[in-house]
Write a protein that binds this DNA or RNA. Sequence first.
DNA 1: AAGAACAACAACCGCCTTAGG
DNA 2: ACCTAAGGCGGTTGTTGTTCT
Length: 316
Amino acid sequence: MRASMLGVTRRICNSREEEGELRRGPWTLEEDTLLTRYIARNREGRWNMLAKCAGLKRTGKSCRLRWLNYLKPDVKRGNLTPQEQLLILELHSKLGNRWSKIAQHLPGRTDNEIKNYWRTKVQKEARQLNIEASSTKFLDAVRSFWMPRLLQKMEQASYSSSSTTLDSQSQADHGVRSPSSNSTVPSSLSTLLMCPPESKLAHYSNLGSENSSPVTSPHVLSANSDTISLQPEILENPTCSPLHGDTFYNNLILSDTCYEEGSCYDLDGFNQASAGDNSPLECQMAGGNWVFDSMVDSLWDMDDMWQFRDLRETGI
DNA sequence: AAGAACAACAACCGCCTTAGG
DNA sequence: ACCTAAGGCGGTTGTTGTTCT
């Protein structure tokens, strides 16, 4: 029954096949409407047939791509947040160019978007540094400079939205007030990241030691099965705060774990490189190597980029 | 003001895998 | 078991908008 119905539909659709040439290039509003309406009335899948039945002179592949990357209601538009960028950097270090796998961890973001981000932003940085984007050198650079920078951005964003007791300059200069303890504590990453790069690395190294002093940050990233989010509840319940000693950096990144298709994988590679005693970059820097000099320049270039983006986003 | 250069991203292409007949 | 079409994925190209000279 179902098969015969399908057969009828197929014949009807095939009869339209010779009506005209297949269209290519940018989609028109009319085509978008046709596709959206058809999928709303029916369902996605069987894309070749769908394209014909919807009256679209497009290949099934083209329809599928248009729907998944642009028209699907849950597709998120706009710039990637620092959190998302951080997650992409981290996941790429684990998964490589498996864009669809990476996209699974960023709800609403498509593999195409992530791929484009990687090519336009990340590879650009690699080019400027004369490092192969897939090389361990670049990965070290990302971990030691770019990721902390994103964390700083996230931290700044959370301060500006949550703190009313100090203005931003005061916060940056003196640290922030912890709601849980009502005492002023060092603004961990902000303070850290205003230090020279040498001391940043020293700090990350210390984070891995037993003797490191407690560090407090108002938010941490956590990853559940699909999402990554800031967790302000850390502030509300200091007893659950993991932000001490050797767990600080691990928890700051991704609660030490990410999830792939229901199964766990750890981030040992990242954490070791970032917080361990023998980060490759640190070793290189100890010898006064080339990576350091170029990264310092590029880091401030990235700052400019971020500031520019911030201005654009705030409409100033 | 105009053209060149660049950046961003949408769309396409080709290959591979999978499912159904 | 084999064949074929559909779907999925990663790489690449094309188009458009923006910035620079």
